[in-house]
Computed example of a mutant assay.
Amino acid sequence: MQSTELNYPITAPSSSSAMKPQVLAIGEFDGVHRGHQEVIKRARERADSLHISASIMTFHPHPREVLGQCKYTNLLTPVMAKMQLLEQLGVDDTYLVSFNPAFMQVTPEEFVENMLIPMQVNTVIVGFDFTFGYRGAGTPDDLCELAQGRFAVEVIRPFHQNGYKVSSTMVRHHLNSGEIEQANALLGRPYSIIGKVVTGDGRGRTIGFPTANIDLSAAFVIPELGVYAIQCHVNGQAYNGVMNVGKKPTFVENLEKPTLEAHLFDFSESIYGSEVSVDFISYIRPERKFSGVAELVAQISRDVEQAKQLFTSFVVLD
């Protein structure tokens, strides 16, 4: 997959790589959940039928972050994670548009004339709730009208699961509630974070449960505090384990930020400095304060056994 950064407006020849007939799906696609996947799937199908490229236009930073909505400083899929997922879905080209205060002022008409037309789009695919232009004034109907026959527009209906519309907001809600299985069902895959293994306080090793302390590589949404069954991908291999997402109340008071500590089963390698990705498989229990080390160790032992039982009944793909 080729990735190209774009700024408004598009002008030749600096952006000539973007000048080719293509099917273009447009959206923020945070989470790349099952609803997003339907939009991208349709773009791929349309492109294949026309024998042209299937492309994605997405934005960075998240438009709502630029608008000052604080919860969007943390994302389900920061840029590098989103790009990986888009490539896995068979996208040929991705255009990352700089969403800045100047771009916020662009009208729907200007967006079409100065972004889409220079890109020679054959077809634009958007979701039913797509908005564009200043203050989100443009709707899919407006996009159809502004196309003026120069490109086709397809609007994808909402994707429902168990009677509910799949959305990034709903995924966030489940993660913030510790409902990891429900979030994973909406995503169509385990929720995942990426980070580097860093030195911790070393306490886990002294109590018989060494942990990999993970420093996030980007501002991911962190699930509800608690203990999770996980699968950790490191150096091309996948290892089952448990992770505590929390503030270590047994040992620390008023820790400002939660830590991510993963204990991997049957694993003894030194992986300090390695980048790892962690898939959240199941929520085991909330974090709580223990009376001492002995009570904590006993509970971790139960957590490990519960997670191992989960992995015997669930198929987790590498």
Rank of each mutant, 00 (worst) to 15 (best):
N254M: 07
P223T: 01
T259V: 11
G208H: 06
Q309E: 13
L75I: 07
A307H: 09
S15T: 13
I52H: 08
Y191Q: 10
T131N: 14
I125T: 08
H60D: 11
K248F: 07
M19E: 14
D215W: 12
A185D: 06
V234Y: 01
T259D: 12
V315G: 09
D303Y: 00
D266R: 11
P140V: 03
V278A: 02
N162L: 12
G149W: 00
T312D: 07
V79P: 02
N184K: 05
M104I: 09
F111N: 10
P101Y: 04
G68D: 00
L67I: 07
N240F: 15
E224T: 08
R288I: 14
S282P: 01
L175Q: 02
H62G: 02
G241C: 13
V276L: 08
L310P: 02
L75T: 05
P158E: 11
P118Q: 08
M19L: 14
Y72R: 03
G208I: 02
N122W: 01
S313N: 12
V276P: 04
P108D: 13
I56W: 07
V316P: 09
P63T: 09
S3L: 11
L187Q: 10
Q237L: 13
E113C: 02
K165C: 12
D266T: 03
G136I: 05
R302D: 15
V316E: 00
I271G: 09
R157Y: 10
D318W: 13
K82L: 02
F209D: 04
M119F: 10
A185V: 04
E65Q: 15
V221T: 08
E109V: 12
H160P: 07
V293W: 01
S313E: 15
Q2R: 15
Y95E: 08
S217R: 12
G138H: 05
Q182A: 11
V276S: 04
Y8F: 14
R172N: 06
R285H: 03
A307Y: 04
V197W: 04
R157A: 13
S17P: 10
D48L: 12
L255M: 15
L86R: 05
G90W: 05
F132A: 00
N213S: 04
G292I: 03
S217T: 12
V106C: 11
G138P: 10
D129V: 02
V153D: 07
N213F: 01
E87W: 09
F128T: 04
F265R: 10
G246R: 03
V276E: 06
G35D: 06
E253V: 13
T211W: 08
M1R: 02
T206F: 04
Q148E: 14
I180H: 06
G133I: 02
V124D: 03
M57A: 05
G204F: 03
S274C: 11
V221W: 01
V315D: 13
T169K: 09
V106S: 11
D318T: 14
L255F: 06
P140T: 03
L296W: 00
E110W: 04
E275H: 09
I10K: 11
R64G: 05
S277T: 14
P63Q: 10
G246W: 09
D318M: 13
V91D: 08
I117N: 02
Y239R: 10
F130S: 06
D201Q: 07
G35C: 04
E109K: 15
T169L: 07
H62F: 04
K289M: 01
V221G: 06
